[in-house]
């Protein structure tokens, strides 16, 4: 079963080589940016906690803001890797 699917995919790929690889690259770019989900959730969580912390200690707002920015930038990195892969797939083939 798997073998026949694989063989048909390969035959498809050889027949429509250029269009197939273009389409697969765009599909892969789309799948790669799904990785943006994780940083979105994580950053939202960090922002919510920061808002809680400001509500609890309004006088420490500037320090909380700085810490939040830095930690969110670190959390963002994984999403950016997905974006890099998407950009490479679309523009730099």
């Amino acid at each position: 079963m798997l073998d026949t699917i694989f063989n048909s995919v390969i035959r498809f790929a050889t027949e429509y080589n250029e269009h197939f690889s273009n389409g697969m690259a765009y599909l892969g770019a789309g799948i790669a940016v799904i990785g943006g989900l994780g940083p979105g959730i994580g950053q939202g969580f960090a922002a919510g906690k920061a808002a809680e912390a400001v509500g609890r200690q309004p006088e420490a707002q500037s320090k909380i803001l700085v810490t939040t920015l830095v930690t969110q930038a670190v959390a963002e990195t994984t999403g950016l890797y997905g974006l890099v892969i998407a950009i490479l797939l679309i523009f730099a083939r």
């Binding site: 930038a73 963002e76 990195t77 950016l80 890797y81 974006l83 890099v84 950009i87």
Partner: peptide
């Protein structure tokens, strides 16, 4: 890489 991708996007 973080700098690059943020500005590039």
């Amino acid at each position: 890489l973080r700098l690059f991708v943020n500005l590039l996007s």
